[in-house]
């Protein structure tokens, strides 16, 4: 059976959830072979094996942390040369897409980004992409070379599928370009204790109607009652009420949770682009004419300062 390379996104050996989703998709096409790089690479093996990796290729060097993107491209290229895979899957983070694109160019292969589904096809893997602010769905494939495909978080379920997960050292020779862009300082993002926005099953977002940074406490309280991540519209971020890392929309994060709760968000195209593929959508807005209500499964026309705290209290009561 053909092998499928899966690039592992991890933090010091802790595998991030989108990589496990990639293993689910990789098993539809062939046998997953994982590539883990940098500090803690070998520590990823147990988790990856539980989710279907037959092999885990690892390599650690200071270059992965000290220089941007290119060392990882060099390593993934070495893995492609070693394995001759049927496809290469990479998580669709900003960095993941850059790695995938450069790799594809080097190995003379087409690249597809931001797939939301993947299945085997007669002419290679077929990716589903959601385009034009999720108003269209396309089926696409790579027609030249080894398909390199980046996949968005929440595109597949994480499934247990125990496999050997044998750790093998990957031989990597860094290219002349590897040390071109130096990372001179790195400040880890402070953990909020909430789920990662793009990975969360539930997202609770606030927009212009929240009307102030302090008022986001109401949104956070609802999020915490549901174990959800907090999102914000561009209007709220531009006003300085919430950090840009939490922005949902075309120029922020694109999310696809089981449940999306939009509070005081009108639903402009810029926002819809980032949340329209959510499974269930709920909105609270004062304006009955707000376009967000065209998308909802359930909407409440009302003042979020009345509705949201009541909802939070009700959720907490029901949880007991």
């Amino acid at each position: 059976m053909a092998e499928v390379l899966v690039y592992v996104d991890h933090v010091d050996g802790a595998v991030r959830k989108p990589t496990l989703e990639l293993l689910t998709l990789a098993r539809r096409i062939g046998e997953p072979v994982a590539v883990a790089l940098g500090n803690g690479a070998a520590d990823t093996a147990a988790t990856l094996a539980e989710h279907g990796a037959v092999k885990v290729l690892t390599h650690d060097a200071s270059e992965y942390a000290d220089y941007l993107v290119v060392p990882k491209v060099d390593a993934l290229q070495a893995a492609v040369a070693a394995v001759s895979p049927a496809a290469v899957l990479v998580p669709s983070s900003a960095e993941g897409k850059e790695i995938a694109a450069r790799l594809a160019l080097r190995i003379k292969s087409g690249v597809l980004t931001d797939a939301v589904d993947l299945e085997a096809g007669d002419e290679g893997p077929v990716a589903t992409q959601s385009v034009f602010a999720a108003s269209f769905t396309t089926k696409t494939r790579v027609s030249v070379g080894t398909p390199v495909i980046t996949v968005k978080p929440n595109s597949a379920a994480v499934e247990a599928a125990p496999a050997a997960g044998a750790v093998e050292a990957l031989n990597v020779t860094f290219s002349d370009q590897a040390t071109g862009t130096k990372v001179t300082a790195r400040t880890p993002r402070e953990s909020t204790g909430r789920p990662e926005l793009t990975e969360a099953a539930i997202v609770v977002s606030g927009g212009r109607g929240v009307n102030g940074a302090d008022n986001f406490a109401i949104i956070e309280a609802l999020a915490d009652s549901l174990g959800a991540a907090v999102g914000a519209s561009r209007a709220a971020v531009d006003a300085g009420w919430y950090p840009h890392t939490n922005q949902v929309g075309q120029t922020g994060k694109s999310v696809s949770p089981q449940l999306y709760i939009a509070n005081g968000i009108s639903g402009a195209i810029q926002h819809r682009a980032g949340m329209q593929t959510s499974k269930t959508i709920v909105a609270v807005n004062k304006d009955a004419e707000a376009p967000i209500f065209d998308l909802v499964d359930y909407g409440v026309v009302g003042d979020l300062f009345d509705v949201v705290p009541q909802l939070t209290e009700e959720v907490n009561t029901r949880k007991g």
Binding site: T137, K139, S143, V284, F293, Y298
Partner: peptide
């Protein structure tokens, strides 16, 4: 190096339930 096999308009979401908050909106939600 890539090919688009099909493009389909996303079906409109089926109209949801919209209620007006009369004091119980949070509980209804």
């Amino acid at each position: 190096w890539t090919a688009v096999d099909s493009a389909a308009e996303r079906p409109a979401r089926t109209a949801g339930t919209i209620v007006k908050d009369e004091g119980e909106g949070g509980k209804q939600l």
